[in-house]
Design a protein around this nucleic acid. Structure first.
Length: 234
DNA sequence: AACTACCTCAACCGCGATAGC
DNA sequence: AGCTATCGCGGTTGAGGTAGT
C-alpha cells in the first residue's frame, strides 16, 4: 500500500497535474493521479484542480455583488455550497463555504443568534442585503439606469442588538426602493433593461445570471417577499 | 521587536450517491 | 442483487499571514 502524500501542494505537483489533465482531461481522478506520477489520492487531485488550478478561477476577495448572490442563494439552497457556487462563475464551493463561515457566521455570533434563526434571517434581509444593495446602486440622479427609483429608508421590523463592528454596518442609511427590493436587485447590473423583466422572479434571475454569461433562466418559479421570510418555490 | 489574537483559505475527512462489475 | 471503487459534497481543521498591543 503506497503512502499518500498530504498537505500543501508543490509547484512541481501542480505542473504535473495540469500537464496530465491537459492530456487526459479531468475526471477519473485515481487514474489521473497515477498517470501524473503523483503520490496523491484522486480525491486530493480533484480538490486541487477544482479549488485552485482550474482555469478562470477568480482569486481574491468576494465582491459585494457576489456577497449579495451568496446571501440570496443561501435563502434558497441552504448549505448546498456547490449549488450556490454554480451561480458564481469562477468561485468554488470551498470559496462560498469559507465566506459563509468566516463572514456570515461571524456576524451571527456577534448578534448572539443562530445563523439559521429567524432573527438572523431578518437581519440579513433587512440590514445586510439592503446594505449590499446600497453599495451596488449609485444613489444619484446620474445613474444610467432607465428606471426611476424612489429611494427611501427601510426599517428592520425587529430589534437587533448589534456589536460595535456590526453597528458600523447597520447605522449607515439603508437605501432601498420603497416598494420592491427585486427592482433594485435587477437594476444595479448593466446589460439589460429592467423593463424587459416584468415579474420579480424574472428580475431576480436576470440579476442572478448576469455574470455567468448564460441566458439560462430557471422556468416557472415564483419568488415573493413578505415581512417574515423570503420564499422561492417552484 | 516580540508576542498574541484573530483571520483567511487550502486541504483533509467522512459520508452518501453513483457507476461498474 | 450485492460488492467495490470512485466521485462529489459538506463539515472541519490547521498553517500561515496580518493586525493589534
Amino acid at each position: 500500500m503506497e503512502i499518500m502524500k498530504k498537505g500543501p501542494w508543490s509547484l512541481d505537483e501542480d505542473s504535473k497535474l495540469i500537464h496530465s489533465i491537459s492530456l487526459l482531461g479531468h475526471g477519473r481522478w485515481e487514474s489521473l493521479a497515477h498517470f501524473a506520477g503523483l503520490k496523491r489520492s484522486g480525491k486530493s487531485c480533484r480538490m486541487r484542480w477544482l479549488n485552485y488550478l482550474r482555469p478562470n478561477l477568480r482569486r481574491g476577495k468576494i465582491t459585494p455583488q457576489e456577497q449579495l448572490l451568496i446571501l440570496l442563494l443561501h435563502f434558497r439552497f441552504g448549505n448546498r455550497w456547490a449549488e450556490i457556487a454554480k451561480n458564481l462563475p469562477g468561485r468554488s464551493d470551498n470559496d462560498v463555504k469559507n465566506y459563509w463561515r468566516t463572514k456570515v457566521q461571524k456576524h451571527a455570533k456577534e448578534l448572539h443568534c443562530d445563523v439559521n434563526s429567524q432573527q438572523f434571517r431578518n437581519f440579513l434581509l433587512y440590514q445586510w442585503l439592503p446594505s449590499l444593495l446600497a453599495q451596488q446602486i449609485p444613489c444619484s440622479s446620474s445613474s444610467s439606469s432607465s428606471s426611476s427609483m424612489t429611494i427611501s429608508n427601510i426599517t428592520c421590523p425587529i430589534n437587533v442588538s448589534v456589536s460595535s463592528t456590526e453597528a458600523e454596518l447597520v447605522t449607515e442609511p439603508v437605501l432601498i426602493d420603497d416598494s420592491n427590493i427585486w427592482n433594485n436587485l435587477s437594476s444595479f447590473e448593466h446589460g439589460f433593461n429592467i423593463s424587459d423583466f416584468s415579474t420579480p422572479a424574472d428580475q431576480y434571475y436576470c440579476q442572478n445570471y448576469w455574470a455567468s454569461g448564460t441566458s439560462e433562466m430557471l422556468p416557472d418559479e415564483t419568488l415573493c417577499l413578505d415581512d417574515m421570510d423570503l420564499w422561492l418555490f417552484p
